[in-house]
């Protein structure tokens, strides 16, 4: 009789423990799945550019349009912003609010420099008459690179929002979770950019 109750006592907590765990942190997995679906959007745009990338319609091609040193500077801006975001995350792990904000600010500036350079490149191309309506190559180019640039712009807006949040409410659990999500988003955009500079710019110039 006594042993029976003992068994019951040990068994009940097991059932309780089994039920609880999965609820709390599904945010990161959910956000990851969002990023994967975003990845599919870019895959479609890459495929479109792969198909249309040689159709110049007797207009200017990549060799005349792309300024590789500018693309290299752009790439380094995004790469720097990636590591400074990493430093922000490290400061966040140590609960250093001020350091986190400073690194996030630097990340935002690098991101803004990236978007600024890209807009400069776009406006330069459009001024030369190589706008998105010029050829299939340029349509797919502007769609792909423009979509990436839009993502970075949204990322910067998100970053500023979080800086205000962290400044106001500190590094609570909710803000940490949000910063983790933005971290994934930011590094993911850098991964997409690897594809853009390799397949669009470098391989485009190769011909």
């Amino acid at each position: 009789m006594a042993t029976q109750t003992a068994v019951h006592e040990t068994q009940t907590p097991v059932f309780l423990a089994k039920e609880e765990p999965h609820a709390p942190s599904s945010t990161m997995l959910g956000f990851w799945i969002y990023l994967m679906s975003d990845c599919l959007i870019f895959a479609v745009l890459f495929a479109t550019h792969g198909v249309l990338g040689r159709n110049y319609a007797a207009g200017p091609g990549p060799k005349e349009l792309f300024d590789l040193p500018l693309v290299a500077i752009n790439t380094s801006m995004l790469l720097f912003s990636s590591i400074t975001y990493g430093f922000a995350m490290l400061a966040m792990a140590k609960d250093k609010k001020q350091a986190t904000l400073v690194w996030l600010g630097i990340t935002g500036l690098f991101g803004a420099a990236f978007v600024g350079l890209e807009l400069f490149e776009f406006s330069h191309m459009i001024m030369e008459g190589a706008g998105p309506q010029r050829s299939a190559f340029l349509s797919s180019f502007f769609t792909l690179v423009g979509t990436h640039g839009t993502h970075v712009t949204v990322g910067i807006i998100w970053l500023i929002t979080l800086m205000v949040q962290v400044g106001k409410y500190g590094l609570g659990a909710a803000n940490k979770r949000r910063l983790m999500c933005l971290s994934l988003f930011w590094h993911f955009l850098d991964v997409i950019w690897i594809g853009v500079f390799s397949f669009v710019y470098l391989m485009g110039v190769l011909g």
């Binding site: 790439t75 790469l79 490290l90 792990a93 500079f197």
Partner: peptide
């Protein structure tokens, strides 16, 4: 979620240096 997501300073630095090298080579090649 906090500890898993951000690795260490060394990890980030390794990743950064490798990325710089892996970016510089294709630009140099082209």
């Amino acid at each position: 979620t906090e500890t898993e997501g951000h690795g260490s300073f060394k990890e980030y630095l390794t990743g950064f240096i490798l990325s710089v090298i892996l970016t510089a080579i294709p630009f140099w090649l082209v």
